[in-house]
Deep mutational scan, measured.
Amino acid sequence: KSAVKALFDYKAQREDELTFTKSAIIQNVEKQDGGWWRGDYGGKKQLWFPSNYVEEMI
């Protein structure tokens, strides 16, 4: 599983989504079709976030 870095702040709209700030590192990313991926951040595990808010880390 990979890690991504947030390009923008994102505030969860639902309880199954992540809230994060710009430059946050989201771990254990599971990529899905449809523009939403799952990952771990801030003590939350495998919640959804919009993939267009992040960049992949190499």
Rank of each mutant, 00 (worst) to 15 (best):
G42Q: 11
D33H: 11
A12W: 03
W48I: 05
K11V: 15
G43M: 07
E30R: 12
K44N: 10
W36G: 01
K45C: 13
R14V: 07
T19L: 03
V54M: 02
K5R: 15
Q32R: 14
L7H: 05
Y10S: 02
W36R: 09
F20M: 04
G35H: 09
E15F: 10
E55K: 09
L47H: 14
I26H: 00
Q46G: 13
I26W: 00
F20Q: 01
T19I: 00
A24F: 02
S51N: 08
V29R: 00
I26D: 01
E30T: 15
K45Y: 14
M57A: 09
I25V: 12
D9E: 09
F20A: 00
K5P: 00
E56D: 13
K44G: 11
L18R: 00
K44A: 13
T19P: 04
F8T: 09
K44P: 02
R38V: 08
A24K: 04
I26Y: 01
W48Y: 10
G42C: 11
T21W: 10
N52L: 10
E17R: 03
L47Q: 10
T19Y: 04
A12R: 02
S23N: 15
D16R: 03
Q32D: 08
K11G: 07
A12M: 05
V4K: 03
E17M: 05
L7R: 08
E55Q: 11
K1N: 13
A12E: 05
E55H: 09
F20W: 01
V29D: 02
T21M: 11
A3N: 13
N52V: 10
N28R: 05
S51T: 07
K11P: 06
D9V: 03
K31L: 05
Y41I: 06
S51A: 14
D9G: 10
E30D: 15
P50S: 04
L47R: 07
K11N: 14
L47K: 12
G43D: 12
A3D: 12
A3Y: 13
G34V: 06
I25N: 01
G42P: 00
E15P: 14
F8K: 15
Y53I: 12
T21C: 15
G39W: 04
G39Q: 00
Q13G: 08
K5L: 12
K44H: 12
A24S: 13
T21G: 11
S2I: 15
V54T: 08
S2W: 12
V29W: 00
P50C: 08
Y53S: 07
L18S: 01
E15H: 11
E56K: 05
Q27H: 15
D40W: 02
N28P: 00
N28G: 05
E17F: 05
K31I: 10
D16K: 05
D9N: 09
I58G: 13
K22T: 10
D9S: 09
G42Y: 06
S51L: 06
T21K: 13
A6Q: 02
Y10G: 01
K45A: 10
V4R: 00
E55R: 08
E56N: 08
D9L: 02
Q46T: 05
K11D: 13
K5S: 07
Q27E: 14
Q27K: 12
W48Q: 05
Y10R: 03
Y10M: 00
P50W: 04
E17A: 01
I25T: 06
Q32P: 12
K11L: 14
W36Q: 04
S2K: 11
T19Q: 07
T19N: 09
P50I: 03
N28L: 04
F20V: 03
P50A: 04
I25F: 06
Q13S: 10
T21D: 12
F20E: 03
K44R: 10
E30N: 12
G35F: 10
G39V: 00
K44S: 13
F20H: 03
R38F: 04
G39D: 02
K31F: 09
V4I: 06
K11M: 13
V54E: 01
F49A: 01
T21N: 13
S2N: 13
K45P: 04
G34P: 06
I26R: 00
Q13W: 06
F49S: 00
G43Y: 06
R38T: 07
M57N: 07
R14D: 08
L47E: 05
V29Q: 02
K31Y: 06
S51Q: 09
L47P: 03
M57Q: 09
T19A: 07
I26S: 00
N28E: 05
I58D: 14
W36N: 03
G43I: 06
K22A: 14
L7Q: 06
L18Y: 03
D33R: 08
K11W: 12
Y53T: 09
R38H: 04
L18V: 02
V4W: 13
K31E: 04
Q32L: 15
F49H: 03
Q46H: 09
R14G: 10
A12P: 05
A3M: 14
R14P: 03
I25Y: 07
G39L: 01
E55M: 11
I26T: 02
Y41E: 03
K44E: 09
S23R: 07
K44W: 10
I58Y: 14
G39Y: 01
Q27R: 13
D16A: 07
S23M: 10
K45S: 12
D16W: 10
L47Y: 12
Q46F: 06
D40S: 02
L18I: 04
V29T: 04
Q32A: 14
A6K: 01
V4A: 11
G34K: 07
E55P: 00
Y41R: 01
M57R: 07
R14S: 13
P50M: 06
D9R: 04
Q32M: 15
G42I: 04
G39F: 02
Q46V: 02
D33M: 10
F20S: 01
D40R: 00
A6S: 06
L7S: 06
T19G: 06
E17D: 05
A6G: 04
V29H: 01
Q46L: 06
K22E: 09
A3T: 15
K5A: 07
V54K: 02
R14C: 15
E56S: 08
R38W: 04
D40Y: 00
V54W: 01
K22Q: 13
E30P: 01
A24I: 07
F20P: 03
W37V: 00
A6F: 01
D33G: 10
L7V: 09
Y10L: 00
Q46S: 11
